[in-house]
Amino acid sequence: METLILMILGIVVAPVLGGLVSGIDRRVTARLQSRFGPPILQPFYDVAKLFGKVKVINNFWQVFCAWVYLIAAALSVGLLFAQSDLLLIFFVQAIGAVFLVMGGLASPSPFSQIGAQRELIQVLTYEPLIILVFASIFMVTGSFRIDEILNYDQPLLAKLPLMFIVLGYALTIKLRKSPFDFSTSHHAHQEIVKGVLTDYSGPYLGIIEIAHWYETIFILGICALFWHTSLVGVVVLLATTYFAEILIDNTMARMTWRWMLKYVWSVGLAMSFVNLIWLHAG
């Protein structure tokens, strides 16, 4: 019962938090560019407006894929709040990722097609890293279950500092921040028109935006596990991490997917190996 309440709480609270994070993100970005920036609630206005627009579609499978993407993202956050299994949550999240790509491929528009292919490469890049992060958490705590992990008595960050950086790469890709924002991009950035989202419009774009908020919370939730022992620690860790993301977004140029695949895999795998060998040695 408690699990169910936590799950529903997660599903209700996450989009609100995710929207706020997105709003703060835009605001801070604007300040970094010496602009004033939109109101914090701007993402909510955007999505509300999108829901008020006329529905136009190009292939009805897009509607289907958009909904499944949203529900899978919501479910993964629900499971995260319900303290389920890390790997399971990640695989549920992957349902969403797959359907987003399928929706993109459903449209014959070349922009959407290229965007979907690039999105797949982004998935390819971050997925092994996240699984390795989970495996390393298992090696420290002896479990993939979040409830068991929360019982561990010291911050994981102390044991897995490099894995946190590896997770940071995944976070950057997942949040669609430069230099990794080439399947589609957020705010006013443009790449191959709007990449995988090109042919989604109106309410369906709104659905995808909400799903993206869920995903933001999902990945920030994983980050929070690295300092689960204190609430202050969580807040400091998340604030620092997210600010670093914004800083990276504003200082980096967009790169190519080839570069991303080579760079992130080599650096990510190398760091994982080093950190896991530390664990074995320690």
């Binding site: 292939n59 499978w61 990722a97 797959v98 790509v101 399928m102 929706g103 993109g104 491929l105 459903a106 449209s107 014959p108 097609q113 979907a116 292919q117 797949l120 998935v123």
Partner: peptide, 9 residues
């Protein structure tokens, strides 16, 4: 994923 998607294009 790409195989599933392209069947719907």
């Amino acid at each position: 994923a790409r195989w599933a998607g392209m069947l719907l294009t």
